[in-house]
Design a protein around this nucleic acid. Sequence first.
DNA 1: GATAGGGCTTCCAGTAACTGGAAGGTCAAG
DNA 2: CTTGACCTTCCAGTTACTGGAAGCCCTATC
Lengths: 132, 132
Amino acid sequence: MNIGNAAEKASLPAKTIRYYEEIGLITPGRAENGYRDYSDNDVHRLRFLQRSRSLGFTIDECRLLLSLYDDKQRASADVKAMALEKVAEIERKIADLQSLRDTLSTLARHCHGDGRPDCPIIDDLAGEGVSA
Amino acid sequence: MNIGNAAEKASLPAKTIRYYEEIGLITPGRAENGYRDYSDNDVHRLRFLQRSRSLGFTIDECRLLLSLYDDKQRASADVKAMALEKVAEIERKIADLQSLRDTLSTLARHCHGDGRPDCPIIDDLAGEGVSA
DNA sequence: GATAGGGCTTCCAGTAACTGGAAGGTCAAG
DNA sequence: CTTGACCTTCCAGTTACTGGAAGCCCTATC
């Protein structure tokens, strides 16, 4: 099947699929007219990629995941370890964002937000305002 | 003062400071030997940049914030609106990450994580596993 | 048979915000 | 006078695409 079709089935832009090919994540066949030709298995891989990317795995992690997917002998422990490490990473990011949000809301709460030039947010950024 | 000194005072790498100059966020003077020469006010701006970047504002937002900082007549409402929009954006990101984390932990919980090749995480990525 | 359109191809460039490294000038200490 | 730290510029690389140009392929319609 052509790239447009595969793109639709995998919920990925065609551009992205070509990019994945460029970096060696997938190698579809070619039709006689030079068009890429995707098998059902190719589409399967693309979906795998789409899903793992949307779960926050980097491209390199997806590469590893795909090789585990291809390896019928892989240990589930390897995959579980990656997933758990990813969970921890996501939780660190969440904590960072929460503290960011708290700081910013505190700042905003202290700002009267009218037409006057006086602004505690700017003052804080300038290093002389409320401590969040 | 030299860039190394300014970098230390602003808690920013010298490389980053040069980059900020390149994109027009700051324009220090030059000493006779060609070295950049930072005034106290320059350091102030750098700190402002450091803090607003660390609060999650993009460079373009920092540019705007700096212009509000420079503008003694600006309305605090403008700044407050930016801060609140940023808070909303951060909260969206947090929610996304939380759902990501939940999906991944569910997956990991269903994985026995031993030496056997059978792995629900891979199965899910392949589109045939547990629904998280 | 000409043409219009949509899809496909390749290649080049740009994004955000730096970061690393090479080649070389400047300065203070020993 | 040399060593080492610090400074300069410029170029390249990072992540994961995305946009666009130039041009081929295929089908349908007039």
